[in-house]
Design a protein around this nucleic acid. Sequence first.
DNA 1: CAATATCCGTCAATCCATAAAATATAGTCA
DNA 2: TGACTATATTTTATGGATTGACGGATATTG
Lengths: 329, 329
Amino acid sequence: MNIHDVAKKSGLSVVTVSRVINNSPSVREGNRRKVLSAMEELNYQPNSAARSLVRGKTGVIGMSITNFNDSFYDRVIRVVNRKLAEQGYFLALSIAENEDEGVNFLFQKDRVDGIILLSPIEEKEYVEELKRKNIPFVLLDNQLQHEDVPSVVVDNYQGGYEATKHLIGLGHTQIAYIGGPSVFLSVAERKRGYVQALDEAGLTPFGTEYCGFTVSSGYEVAKRWIREDKLPTAIFSGDDFIALGVVQALREEGILVPQDISVVGFDDQQFVGEFYPRLTTVRQPEAQMGSIGVDLLMKLINGEVMPAVVTKLAPQLLVRESTASVRLT
Amino acid sequence: MNIHDVAKKSGLSVVTVSRVINNSPSVREGNRRKVLSAMEELNYQPNSAARSLVRGKTGVIGMSITNFNDSFYDRVIRVVNRKLAEQGYFLALSIAENEDEGVNFLFQKDRVDGIILLSPIEEKEYVEELKRKNIPFVLLDNQLQHEDVPSVVVDNYQGGYEATKHLIGLGHTQIAYIGGPSVFLSVAERKRGYVQALDEAGLTPFGTEYCGFTVSSGYEVAKRWIREDKLPTAIFSGDDFIALGVVQALREEGILVPQDISVVGFDDQQFVGEFYPRLTTVRQPEAQMGSIGVDLLMKLINGEVMPAVVTKLAPQLLVRESTASVRLT
DNA sequence: CAATATCCGTCAATCCATAAAATATAGTCA
DNA sequence: TGACTATATTTTATGGATTGACGGATATTG
């Protein structure tokens, strides 16, 4: 069933039907209705392959994601989805697994009008490919070190700075940082903020540890510190998962959070604000990030030339119950 | 840049190039290589819109999802993604929000070869639409009451039965059920298993409560029970989120899990096995579910007629530390 | 009533790849 | 040399919609 059937059914020509579909003004209201009702009756939808073939546009934006069982990603993705819908675009998500089979599928100009890469890892090859194929794209939660690619990230430096400042304000002087994997720029940036805040207060870092962004690795780090009898009075964790592991390890050893040790997380994962101890954490501006990302992409798609800058957004410290004044011994 | 450019570059005809692309055997090895290197040099990829237009196939499977920040969905989606890749298909995810803009985009035969609906809610309209449009589809984690649609679900009855049986085996006689929203068939099925297990043991249900699948609603139910001084010795929760809320509420009142009250969850969400009290829960066979779902869909796509049955898979009870023998008073 | 808009149809071209049929060019072998 | 294979080419049609040019048919206006 195609546009010809609609034409026949409505008693009008194919061209007129096409005009109706594409909201051309030069169709009389009566005929427009005839066409629309014919489409309705036949349950007709224009063939999108044919349309994108002739118009060179698909109306689809692709988003490549690695993680999604994660509140931060969840929020970003949903915002992007909604915002794109408002602009008349559809969002197609594709999971980028190790073997990136799925990615090459998205990375075709005849499949999507643009791409949003949501990933914390520097994925140079992907960026190269997209540039080569001349597909408009933006990076979210990600920035490339030596490339000029439009990207939107949270100011991780500021996040680390504020978290640490908060702990200092509570009287802590022995503050440790447990970062995620050191390959992430965000991890280094958060550390930079942490060091800077300490510096300004005339303090020296108690220690830094890198581990995975997982509960169990946070758990292990804390356990090791306990074993080595090398505990700070406050810990800034690279993300909430690590923080949860730390809290758990401490609790098992009878060390209370926040009475004995304060802990700050990052990302405001679901539930961390609901459980005891409700976690003090740094919330990323997901809505802004998604929204700005979509705006940038739309500009690129519309051919606007832009300085390819990194947009840094301010994080927000959420003070809850896992941090408290330093215990006076 | 199109197939003609490749033909020109390789010095062969368009038809030959097409044959190479489609692995037709009747092309000499030398020429095949010529074509391939021309494609390489020009960075050519066949236009997928044109291909699917002429072939009536897209090579894409669409998956409509509602939740994804959830371990159960995460696991299913990843399995499906991998399995489809093995079969040469790509997975395009679309988020079905309230306004289902995104869904209509997927639900077009010229966009996908088949659809996987992953959703716990009975979505009759979607099913109707897919049937009307004659798009092959399967349901995962979902079944329709009075329709003949191929679907794969966990045996929720059995899950409820085993969870309850486990509690009974620990000596509990006062066992309550907190289900998710009563509109879900799964909620009713789990209850059926719960009642049946009690029945067989000559016990009567302590009480049933329906609430949202959220931590806070579990929390509130438990708090209310405490207020009303109406506590069982064991609780079977409709899912892990509810269970976590229950544990939290009890803990705040000094009621220990599992010493005072045993709690069982459902779904084995991330971390519930890592935190104290490590949650006893029912794990769904996500890998099987995804795999069978894809198999079914492939059969439908290949035109095999099948009795549209509901495939029920066995769940697995994971006994951890949130359940213990009943306390003798 | 004539002049001008407005609307609609016809025609043809385009987007890009696939596919079938018929023809053509090698090269191989007897 | 003639017959035969294997491989290529040319040609034409197909899939479904969009688009522009152009002309004819109404409808509107003065």
